[in-house]
Each structure stands twice: as structure tokens, then as C-alpha cells.
Design a protein around this nucleic acid. Sequence first.
DNA 1: ACGTGTCACTTGCTCGTGTCACTTACTCGT
DNA 2: ACGAGTAAGTGACACGAGCAAGTGACACGT
Lengths: 331, 331
Amino acid sequence: MEHASRRRATSQDVAKEAGVSRTTVSYILNNTPHQSIPDATRQRVLEAAARLRYTPSASARTLRRGHSDVVLFLLPDWPIGHAIAAVTEQLAQHLLPHGLTLVSHTHLRERPLDDVWRALTPAAVIRVGEFGPVEDEQLRQAQIEVLVEVGVSESSPTQLAFPIQRMGRMQAEHLAATGHQRIGYAAPSERRLSVFRDNRLHGVREACAELGLDLPDVRTIENDPASATEAIGQWRAAGVTGVCAYNDEIAMILLAGARRAGVRVPDDLAVIGTDNMHAAAFTDPPLTTVTIDACQVAAQMANHVIVGLTGTGTRGRIPSSVLDVVVRESA
Amino acid sequence: MEHASRRRATSQDVAKEAGVSRTTVSYILNNTPHQSIPDATRQRVLEAAARLRYTPSASARTLRRGHSDVVLFLLPDWPIGHAIAAVTEQLAQHLLPHGLTLVSHTHLRERPLDDVWRALTPAAVIRVGEFGPVEDEQLRQAQIEVLVEVGVSESSPTQLAFPIQRMGRMQAEHLAATGHQRIGYAAPSERRLSVFRDNRLHGVREACAELGLDLPDVRTIENDPASATEAIGQWRAAGVTGVCAYNDEIAMILLAGARRAGVRVPDDLAVIGTDNMHAAAFTDPPLTTVTIDACQVAAQMANHVIVGLTGTGTRGRIPSSVLDVVVRESA
DNA sequence: ACGTGTCACTTGCTCGTGTCACTTACTCGT
DNA sequence: ACGAGTAAGTGACACGAGCAAGTGACACGT
């Protein structure tokens, strides 16, 4: 009976099994509207499909329709922190009920992204971070159906702004609220992070300006406690009592540097991070940081994709409530 | 001229442009063997293709050939640590020259992986970790061309064994070499990590047995310094002087717990982690840990995929040199 | 009896490639 | 002069699904 299940069942097989034409099978399985099909037939076909374990060939479908059911999550090649992993998982879950499959690809700048796009013909592409104009042109040329860009601004209607500046702003506001007058900023040396760095720093600057504080004293931290020690010395000399770190990793380097220099945190110098990485709760002292609610971010991304694909509904935005300060002991 | 570049160019368009048949175009672009084509024609076609920016439709090609050029990297839904990110990037780079595109998908156990498989029809699937028999059966049924499983054993020829036990073994050996007689093991409470936990622990056990030490004193650590403090108290009462932590995150919780309890690391209790996460260098004290060379792991994975797909060459194994102890101060 | 409408389907074309089989034209050995 | 062999290329058929258009059967109104 089932002897020849070597090959995958096609809709043709289902049609034969149910005693109807292939088209009918197609109509039934796709719930094609404006088609009148008696329940008896429908049942027969559905059962036949189940019996043969039929599942449509994605490539054939894609060929016919012009796009697949894959949503491509395009990530830059720099370290994006664990928050992304959580977002990815949530996003995949949000997209599943719509029949969309999420796959991730980290984009290596050596290779054009045409490859990935063409290899998948995705229904939508979500990319995080900003790319160069070259990549922009490539995407344009590839005629992507929907493009959700998670970036800083909302210059195009398909863009979903992530409140990056607000992260810096919240850091600064927290420091100001706890009595700090002179604020420092610890930037990463990694060049590829510049977009994020600049925007977070911009947020810090804005907050300082609004609160009537001096502009932040910016120092670059290398991947080494010694560089942190040096920066800390300079900050202290300049009267800085609170530092906003680019993220928790930089904050941890700062903590290590402070330890070496005999500087007490938060008494001599307060430190606040970003991302609330798992380890942040276990540093010495535990790190005060800004968290991101991956759930809400993912929900908005999913919403943008669905709206873009179906053309119905309205695009939301990422609410500022995705960010929150987790107060521990470092600030 | 270029006015109608709205639609993507097909091989038909290239054929017309070059004044040959579509078949010829196909032969040339695919370097089909046993075909005699004069250089003049070849050039003409290649130029026409370039001029029209022709790139073959992945779906059509996939439909015809039965599989795509996508390699699917199937990840489990538990937190796998940053090492994976590095491996992913390396792997993608290794596969590119073979015309293969790597995409990742984290597998949610609620949903069967049929979806992803069918949505991509990948040329190969690499999965890390062990899945249940249900998923195994699903994969079997889906007739995957090559399956590289990164797991503990090498029970099937397509499996690539990752020396997980060896990680635990190296931890224990390092502790023993630095004079510790009684060894503890700090396990994570997360149930999904059990495969990894059990194997690392197994390595620790083996090493202890071989070195003539007592079996390790295993304690489970919750995501909370208090639970670490408790475990540390019990270890010290039992005469344990060195602890192997499941990974650096657990090790960090241990460090935090020790701090609270006034236990000095490494003098009162040595701690060694695993993974060499970025933050490990900046803890107090800096964490001694076992690193994984993502580069070598990725190279072997790529090798397995290529061998499996082309049928030529020989499958290598992951050398034990991928692991190394980074001695810092915690042990 | 005849036109119209709806139901329940089916026929046939299309998406873009890969590839087998087949046709010319031309060269060469005997 | 003639068959064999090769170079250079073409025609036609899959692959599996979606969809526009068509078809026969029956019901209903006049």
C-alpha cells in the first residue's frame, strides 16, 4: 500500500486518491474564495491529503506566486547582544500563525546580500541596523515586497523606529535623578557599532541639555580593564560622578577598571549599562541597566510584516515602554 | 532601453539578448560538462547575462533539481551562548565559495520542523543538540540530503561529534593540576540544557575517576546568587575546594554567591567556567575558563556538509585542540 | 421550449530552469 | 564518395503548483 512513499506526495497524487482533479485539490487546500465545493468533496480531499501526508512544494508555490513564505531576518555582522536572540524567537512565534517561517542570516559585508535574497525569494525582509547606500540599492533592485527596517528614524513608511536615543536618555535621566551633575559616556571602540553608539550618545546629550547639565564627557573604552582605568582617572579628574556605558559589556569593563583603580562603584563613580544581559545581575556590584522588552519589539515587527504583506490593518510603532531601567546597585 | 527592467531578467531574456537558445545559456552558465561551446559564444552570453543583471530564479532551479542551495542551521530554543554566533558567521563564510547560503532557524518545540524544511527545501541541514525521536522521524521522512548533527557521539556516519565531555574533563584536570582534591560541579537548573549538562558532568566524572579523586559533588544553581551561596556552603562543608561550573554564566553566579558569603575565590574556592564569554575577562576575579575555537568547529561543519553534498573527499572530525583552558585568576 | 443562473468541477496555460534527445554542418579517414 | 565522428546548437518535456476560463448538469422562471 504505502510501499512507494519514497517520493513526496504531490497534489496530483492527492487528486487521484480523492478522485477529483488537481485544481479542485488546490482550491480546497488553499481555501480559494468564490469557489463552491460541497463538504463531502472537501472532506474526501482533506482526508486523502492527510493520508498521503501531502505538503505542498514550497519551490513550486514560490515559482508560481513569485515569493515564498519565508521571512528573512537580516542581521549585521557585529555583535548585537543577546536581546536579538530573544526577539528572534518571539518573532518566529508571532509569524507562525500567518504561515510565515522566519530564518536569520547574518550579513557579511564582503558578500552582497543578493545571494541570500535570491536563494530565498522571501516574502519579507526585516533588517536591523542601517546599511550602506550600496545595499539599499541592491534591495531596491531586488524588489522586495516588504521591508521592515529597524533603525533609528522613520524616514520611510516601512521603517520601524527603535528608540535607540531613548536608551541613552534614560541612562542619563536615571543618573541625574540620583544626584549626578557631571556625566560621562563610555563608548566602545568597535567601529561597526558606530550607528548605535552615536544614537545612544545623542540621547544622553539631549537629556543632559534638557536637564541643564554639561554635555557628557565621552571616552572610548578598549577591550581591556587598563583602558577603563585610564578613562576612569580622567573622568574623576573632570569631576564626573556617573557614567553611561554603551552597553552592559562596556559597563563590566568599567567595573573591572574601577576595581583595579580602587574606585568604589557607585560611591565614587556610578555606572549604568544597557541590554540587561544575563550576567548583569551577578557583577560586583550588580549592574543597573536599561532593559528592552523583546516581546513587545517582536510583536511590532510582526505587525509591520503582516500589515505590509496583507495590506490591511495599520502599522504600529514600538512604544517607549519597551525600555525600562532595572535599578540594581551600580547606579 | 532599460525601461522595462521592472521584471527580473530570465534566462529567456538572456538568450534573446545574446542571440542563442535558452538551452545554450543554461549550459554556459552552469558549466555543464561534455558540451562544446566556442569562447566567442560563451563570452557573448556571459556579457548579455551581466548586462541584464541576470540571476537564476532560486525557486525554479529548486523545483527542477529537487533541492535548494540553502543550508539550514537548526538551533534549539535554549540559550546556546555566544560561541554559536561566531560559529555561524564562520560557517557562512566557509560555505559561500560553494554557492551555499547559510540561514539559521531556532527550532521551537511547539511546532514541528516540517514547516521550515518544506519552506526551504535545503540542500543540507545542520542541527546542533539532540532532538527527540519524533523530530528524527520527521527528518527521515523529509528525506534530507545531508544531515550534520553536532552532538555528543558519532553513532551515525553523518554525525560530527563535538567533544562536550572533554570540556568537563579539561575543567577537572585543570583543577586537579592546581592541587584540588575534592571537586564540585555546578549544574544549571534549566531543564533544556540537560544533554549538555550531563555530558560535561560525565567528563568531569571520568577525569576524577582517572585521577583517583572522589566523584564530583554536584549541586544545582538557580538563577540567583542566594542559591549559589547555599551550594557554596555545602561544598565547603564537604571539603570541596574547586568547582567546575556548567558555563561562564553559572560561574558568574557562583562568583556573586561567594562574594556574598565572604568566600574568597580562588583561595577558599576555585571556580572554572566554560565558553569564554566576553564578560569572563572582566569579572572579579577574572574567570578561568575553557574556550572553544569557533573557527575550527565551523571548518569541520563546512567540511561535513561539502563532503556530504559532493560525495567526494573525506569527513574530518573536530580535533580536541578546539578546546583550550584560558587561565585567569579564578582557578 | 428556451434563456439564465448557479453549482461543481475540469482543461489548459503559466511560472523559470535543467536536461535528454535530436538536428545541422563540417571534417576526416579510407 | 561515403559513413563516422564531432562541434555547435535547438526543441520539447519535465518539475509542482496556482488560476483564468470553460463545461456540463441541473433548477427555475416565463
